[in-house]
Design a protein around this nucleic acid. Structure first.
Length: 293
DNA sequence: AGCCGATCCTGGATGC
DNA sequence: TGCATCCAGGATCGGC
């Protein structure tokens, strides 16, 4: 489910509820998600104060007052919701939708404010880890992570340099978290369409023969940032599971130009092409065969 | 070294 | 209606 915009939406929702509060109790309802929870997970979190809530790539990072970081990944179907109090249920349709899914509520954090934050994940591809802050950067999960697209790292030159010598497709390279972080299937398809680049084009074609970045590289870097920022502003894309922490749906799915739009007309003015669906390394790719070259 | 397919898991959509 | 099949926003692993 969650690519960078969805994770960032969740972060912005959780931040005001969590930062500065203490974790009074942690209700861990099963031994594992994708991986086993850390040893004594609930006990190690109890009483800790949350100092900051950050994001790197698709990871949420809660800085704790004991120099540990609670690392959370939402996998394909993970979501957080905030309940106003430990006992209280949310009113109306949002509350009902949450209650219906309660079988997949795997962790709940009770905060010193009385709020409760619940992690729900039907497919259980998500996970939570505790890592010492000093060891975070050298941790296997983080030391190989690529460019952060919303930071200052991403520009055409950096992208072309990362992709230099890669014989794989642009689609596969953009999905590779060790090259550029945070993109998933949706935003790769959308960015390539906006850039007018074929997903089948070789990744190293972003650089000229002399190694300098081509115009394509600059355009692609710009539209990646653009589509991610627009999606964050829309609260992410809600296809199945993604919700904002207040239960509301994101609405960027209404702005898709190619993703899941096989057979529809290309929306680029004057193009006249049709959106196609192909499979690349086992995953659906949506693109316009006319204007993406 | 680097790429591809299989795999973890559940639920929704589709087809017979 | 029921059952089987396929597909899904991710990322790791083994095999080649």
């Amino acid at each position: 489910m969650p690519e960078l915009p969805e994770v960032e939406t969740v972060r912005r929702g959780l931040e005001p509820a969590m930062v500065g509060t203490r974790l009074i109790g942690v209700d861990q309802r099963r031994p594992d998600l994708r991986f086993p929870f850390p040893e004594n997970f609930a006990r190690r979190l109890a009483g800790r104060r949350v100092e900051a809530l950050g994001r790197r790539a698709k990871y949420l990072l809660a800085d704790l007052d004991d120099a540990q970081v609670l690392v959370m990944h939402l996998g394909m179907s993970g979501s957080f919701r905030i309940e106003a109090s430990a006992r209280g249920a949310l009113p109306g349709a949002i509350g009902q939708a949450a209650a219906k899914n309660a079988a997949h509520d795997h962790v709940a954090f009770d905060l010193s404010t009385g709020a409760r934050i619940v992690y729900n994940d039907p497919r259980r591809f998500g996970y939570m880890l505790l890592i010492a802050r000093a060891e975070l950067a050298s941790h296997p999960l983080f030391k190989t992570i690529g460019l952060e697209p919303l930071g200052n790292e991403l520009d055409g030159a950096a992208l072309a340099a990362r992709f230099a010598g890669k014989t794989t497709s642009l689609k596969a390279a953009l999905l590779d978290q060790s090259l550029i972080a945070g993109l998933g299937n949706i935003y790769v398809c959308e960015a390539l369409h906006r850039a007018g680049l074929s997903p089948r084009r070789a990744a190293d074609s972003l650089a000229r023969k002399d190694g300098t970045p081509s115009e394509r590289a600059h355009v692609l870097a710009r539209v990646i940032r653009e589509v991610l920022e627009e999606a964050v502003a829309a609260g992410g894309s809600s296809l199945r599971d993604h919700r904002q922490t207040n239960g509301a749906l994101g609405y960027f799915q209404h702005s898709f130009r190619v993703y899941d739009r096989e057979g529809f007309a290309c929306q680029k003015p004057g193009c006249g092409g049709t959106v196609k669906r192909i499979v690349q390394s086992g995953r659906a790719t949506f693109f316009c065969g006319s204007c993406q070259r």
